[in-house]
Amino acid sequence: GCWSIEHVEQYLGTDELPKNDLITYLQKNADAAFLRHWKLTGTNKSIRKNRNCSQLIAAYKDFCEHGT
């Protein structure tokens, strides 16, 4: 299931919640338009490089609020 937004804000980028895991989750569960909008298409590695934690948190919040 979903992590809470508080959990993501607190732990994203740590061993508790690697950016990797959040990106994988969104790529698996969000639709193509969402991924394009948040620039989460492409390889996990390129996304990790190009999107910082606050951008990923914003995307995750949007996903939780509007889910697909």
Score class of each variant (00 low, 15 high):
Tyr11Pro: 00
Asp31Lys: 08
Phe34Ser: 03
Lys39Glu: 09
Thr24Ser: 11
Arg51Cys: 13
Tyr11Gln: 10
Glu16Ser: 14
Trp3Tyr: 12
Thr24Asp: 15
His7Ile: 06
Ala30Met: 03
Pro18Ile: 03
Ile47Gly: 07
Asn44Trp: 05
Arg51Val: 11
Tyr11Met: 11
Asn52Gly: 06
Phe63Glu: 01
Asp62Ser: 13
Gly13Glu: 03
Gly1Asn: 11
Ile5Tyr: 13
Cys64Ser: 10
Trp3Arg: 03
Glu16Asp: 13
Phe34Ala: 02
Thr43Tyr: 07
Lys45His: 04
Lys19Glu: 07
Trp38Ser: 03
Glu16Leu: 14
Gly42Cys: 05
Asp31Gly: 11
Gly67Cys: 07
Lys19His: 07
Lys45Thr: 10
Leu56Phe: 01
His37Thr: 15
Ser46Met: 09
His37Trp: 06
Trp3His: 04
Arg48Met: 08
Tyr60Gln: 01
Gln55Cys: 07
Phe63Gln: 02
Ala33Val: 13
Asn44Lys: 13
Thr43Glu: 14
Ala30Glu: 01
Leu40Asp: 00
Cys53Tyr: 05
Gly67Ser: 14
Ser54Asp: 12
Lys28Gln: 13
Arg48Ile: 09
Phe34Leu: 05
Asn29Leu: 03
His66Gly: 15
Glu65Gly: 14
Gln10Val: 05
Thr41Lys: 10
Tyr11Phe: 11
Lys19Met: 08
Ala30Phe: 00
Gly13Ile: 00
Gln27Ile: 12
Thr43Met: 06
Lys49Arg: 12
Glu65Met: 14
Thr24Asn: 07
Lys45Cys: 07
Lys49Val: 06
Lys28Leu: 08
Asn29Ala: 10
Arg36Trp: 06
Cys64Val: 13
Ile23Thr: 02
Asp21Cys: 12
Cys53Glu: 05
Pro18Asp: 05
Arg51Pro: 06
Glu16Thr: 13
Ile5Phe: 15
Asn50Glu: 08
Cys2Met: 15
Leu40Val: 04
Glu16Arg: 15
Lys61Ser: 07
Leu26Ala: 01
Ala58Gln: 13
Ala59Gly: 02
Ser54Pro: 10
Val8Cys: 05
Ala30Asn: 04
Asn44Ser: 13
Cys53Arg: 09
Tyr60Ala: 00
Glu6Ser: 09
Trp3Asn: 02
Thr24Gly: 11
Asn52Ser: 12
Lys28Asp: 08
Ile57Trp: 04
Ser54Trp: 07
Trp38Ile: 01
Ser46Trp: 08
Glu6Val: 09
His7Val: 05
Ile47Leu: 10
Leu26Glu: 00
Glu6Cys: 07
Ser54Arg: 15
Ser54Ala: 14
Ala59Trp: 00
Gly1Met: 14
Arg48Gly: 09
Asp21Tyr: 04
Gln55Val: 11
Ser54Glu: 11
Leu12Cys: 06
Glu9Ser: 11
Trp38Tyr: 08
Asp15Val: 14
Asn44Pro: 08
Ser46Tyr: 11
Ala59Leu: 05
Lys39Cys: 08
Leu40Ala: 00
Arg36Val: 08
Asp62His: 15
Asp31Met: 02
Thr43Pro: 09
Lys61Asp: 02
Gln55His: 14
Lys39Ser: 09
Gly67Lys: 13
Ile47Thr: 10
Lys61Asn: 07
Leu17Asp: 01
Tyr60Asn: 00
Ser46Glu: 12
Glu9Trp: 04
Leu22Asp: 02
Trp3Val: 02
Leu17Ala: 02
Lys28Phe: 06
Asn50Val: 06
Asn44Val: 12
Thr41Arg: 10
Ser54Leu: 12
Glu9Tyr: 06
Leu40Glu: 00
Leu35Trp: 02
Leu40Pro: 00
Thr41Ala: 10
Asn50Phe: 06
Ile47Ala: 09
Ala58Val: 07
Asn44Thr: 15
His66Val: 11
Ala32Ser: 13
Trp3Met: 06
Ile47Met: 14
Asn29Pro: 00
Gly42His: 05
Thr68Arg: 15
Tyr25Thr: 03
Asp31Val: 03
Gln10Leu: 08
Lys28His: 08
Leu22Tyr: 00
Ala59Glu: 00
Ala33Glu: 14
Cys2Phe: 15
Asn20Ala: 15
Phe34Thr: 04
Tyr25Gln: 03
Phe63Leu: 06
Gly13Pro: 02
Leu35Lys: 10
Tyr60Thr: 01
Gln27Glu: 04
Phe63Trp: 12
Trp38His: 13
Phe34Lys: 02
Leu12Gly: 02
Asp62Gly: 10
Ser4Lys: 06
Ala32Val: 13
Ile5Trp: 06
Leu26Ile: 10
Asp15Met: 14
Trp3Gly: 04
Trp38Arg: 03
Leu12Asn: 00
Trp3Lys: 04
Leu12His: 04
Ala59Val: 12
Asn20Glu: 07
Gly67Glu: 14
Tyr11Thr: 13
Asn50Asp: 08
Cys2Trp: 14
Leu56His: 01
Tyr25Glu: 03
Ile5Ser: 06
Asp15Phe: 13
Glu16Gly: 08
Lys19Leu: 08
Glu9Asp: 05
Gly13Met: 02
Cys2Asn: 15
Phe34Ile: 03
Gln10Cys: 10
His66Met: 13
Asn29Gln: 09
Pro18Ala: 07
Gly67His: 15
Lys45Pro: 05
Ile47Ser: 07
Ser4His: 05
Glu65Val: 11
Glu16Met: 14
Ala58Ser: 12
Asp21Met: 15
Cys2Pro: 06
Glu9Arg: 11
His66Tyr: 13
Gln55Tyr: 15
Arg48Pro: 06
Glu9Asn: 12
Trp38Ala: 03
Thr41Met: 11
Thr14Ser: 12
Glu65Asp: 10
Leu40Arg: 00
Cys2Gly: 15
His7Arg: 06
Gly1Lys: 15
His37Arg: 15
Arg36Ala: 11
Thr24Pro: 01
Gln27Ser: 06
Trp38Asn: 06
Ala32Ile: 13
Asn52His: 03
Pro18Gly: 05
Ala33Met: 10
Glu16Cys: 11
Leu56Asp: 00
